[in-house]
């Protein structure tokens, strides 16, 4: 089904294929007012598992503290600054930041990226959707490496605006890490 998220199943696909459905993603889509104000975190976390680091990582109180460690995260998008701390903190690599206000044609997408070599600033990267299909190209805006070498690097990519909610992984052109799949 063609949607804001690209060509994804309408529902019930997550547990049979690993691909979140349009229905799953609609449930975590930031409201229009939040998307218009600047960068905002998108928590693609759909399953209750015991996990709370996103709530701890947020310095702005936007992601509420968990009363039950199994709860799904709850975010106050108007408090979210899109800083990306939660992207690096999420053990499930399920959080992204999207900025649709970056320029008239382009958006910024922050993605967790645990592959070496890390891309360089301004390098052209290939973008993939949630099913791993190549959907376009972007350019690296910045790379946030984190405090220690075990931290999850976060790569901010400039991408065509239409890919803001489509692209969720990146690869280097002719990268060994991606060959074959």
């Amino acid at each position: 089904m063609k949607s804001l998220y690209g060509d994804l199943p309408e529902k019930d696909s997550l547990l049979s294929s690993g691909i979140p459905s349009v229905q799953d993603l609609d449930g975590v889509l930031p409201p229009a007012e939040a998307r218009k104000k600047g960068p905002v975190a998108v928590l693609e976390c759909f399953q209750k598992i015991p996990c709370d680091p996103c709530g701890q990582a947020c310095k702005f109180g936007a992601i509420k503290e968990f009363s039950d460690v199994n709860d799904l995260p709850v975010i106050d998008w108007m408090r979210c600054t899109g800083c990306g701390q939660c992207v690096a903190a999420c053990p499930g690599l399920a959080i992204f930041v999207v900025d649709e206000t970056y320029s008239p044609e382009e958006c910024l997408i922050a993605m967790p990226h645990e592959f070496v070599p890390l891309p360089e600033r301004d390098q052209v990267v290939l973008l993939y959707d949630r099913a791993g299909r190549h959907v376009g190209e972007g350019a690296v805006h910045r790379v946030v490496r984190g405090k220690d070498k075990l931290a999850t690097p976060v790569v901010w990519v400039r991408a065509p605006k239409a890919l803001a909610y489509v692209a969720r992984a990146l690869g280097l052109p002719e990268s060994q890490g991606r060959s074959g799949n």
Binding site: L14, L15, S17, G18, I19, P20, E44, C45, F46, Q47, I49, P91, G92, L93, A94, Y128, D129, R130, A131, G132, R133, R168, A169, R178, N181
Partner: peptide, 12 residues
Amino acid sequence: YAVHASKVRRLG
């Protein structure tokens, strides 16, 4: 966990 599944699925 679904997050692990999604993580490998988006790698193709």
